[in-house]
């Protein structure tokens, strides 16, 4: 029996997430895993925007910032439960993407890049400068989600690291499921069509403005949820979450792993999240190695790591 690509991808993800802890030498690795998942969620959004629809964003960290600070601010100022604050953040991000996306998405290539970049930088500037509200560059505390306590009362006692590993792991799977659904759906097909040839997509009736906007909003919500989860698990947040470098990280992870597929992009998120952990011994070289990896992969494996590795395997089969 042959599995559909969607089922196969989900199966691989579930197995990896469920079985990896068996290999963890210490509880610390749950923490690293959770961090990979947080990035994986944002990167899945980039797959929809860049991999499916072919649009570039260099400012998606702005949405992660909105999601993160929603979790920090809404509980304090609106008395909202942190979980609901995450939803509020996602709604605000989606609305923001809708408003900004309308004019921005008419642009193409580098122009779109610089417009999204400008948007992201504006968000991070507000977070840095509105000290009374956000604590400025020093950051601010984020209240506890409270779910771990509930689980404990219900008889499931997880360490903080374990809890966030499983919580974010499930979020990754849901995120991947949605993205994979979209891929083969009418909307996903239209997105990929406008990526392939915008003029042809328009002549078959695709309202490209509307579809690009939908992809932009969806990917913004992914970034927002990713930011929220980061804030909630760290219980602390700084404006770096919305910074230019974080935007670049998202795009790099996706493209490095292979932006055309959900699995590839998540693989990229894992590699780039693990890189600094592996390089702690050479902390001084971290930046140089990161820069080098970015250049080498793009030059020699332009399709991204995972597709290139898979092709190597397939060639081995023949």
């Amino acid at each position: 029996m042959k599995l559909s690509p969607k089922t196969a991808t989900l199966l691989v993800l579930v197995l990896l997430i469920a079985l990896s802890p068996l290999l963890f030498p210490s509880g610390y690795y749950y923490r690293v895993g959770a961090l990979i998942f947080v990035n994986a969620i944002a990167v899945t959004g980039i797959v929809i925007l860049t991999g499916y629809a072919g649009q570039i964003s260099l400012g998606h960290a702005g949405f992660a910032g909105i999601g993160a600070y929603a979790c920090a601010l809404a509980p304090v100022h609106l008395g909202l439960h942190p979980g609901l604050a995450m939803v509020l953040g996602a709604v605000i991000s989606g609305l923001m993407a809708f408003l900004v996306g309308r004019p921005i998405l008419r642009l193409k290539g580098y122009y779109l890049g610089v417009a999204t970049l400008g948007f992201g930088i504006l968000i991070s500037m507000v977070l840095n400068n509105e000290r009374q509200l956000t604590g400025g560059p020093d950051g601010m505390e984020v209240p506890d989600l409270g779910l771990r306590g509930l689980l404990k009362d219900a008889g499931l006692d997880l360490t903080n690291g374990q809890f966030w590993y499983w919580f974010c792991g499930i979020a990754v799977i849901i995120g991947a499921w949605l993205a994979l659904n979209l891929f083969n759906s009418p909307s996903g097909r239209a997105l990929r069509a406008l990526h392939g040839s915008e003029v042809a997509a328009r002549t078959v009736g695709v309202d490209v403005t509307r579809l690009k906007l939908q992809a932009f909003v969806i990917s913004a919500v992914y970034a927002s949820v990713s930011g929220s989860l980061l804030a909630l698990q760290n219980k602390f947040i700084t404006p770096d979450v919305a910074g230019f470098m974080h935007s670049i990280e998202m795009v790099t992870m996706a493209v490095l792993g292979g932006v055309g597929s959900v699995l590839g992009a998540i693989f990229g998120a894992a590699v780039l999240t693990l890189l600094p952990q592996v390089l702690t011994v050479f902390a001084e070289y971290e930046q140089m190695v990161l820069g080098l990896v970015m250049m080498l992969v793009m030059i020699f494996l332009p399709q991204g790591l995972l597709p290139s590795i898979l092709r190597r395997f397939r060639r081995g089969d023949e």
Binding site: N181, L182, P186, R189, A190, R192, A193, V204, G205, Q214
Partner: peptide, 20 residues
């Protein structure tokens, strides 16, 4: 898929229905 894209006007629907 190329030809299915040609059916866009007939097959399009709410994006949320497609996501889920």
């Amino acid at each position: 898929e190329n030809v299915m894209a040609g059916f866009h006007l007939k097959e399009r629907g709410p994006v949320l229905a497609d996501l889920f």
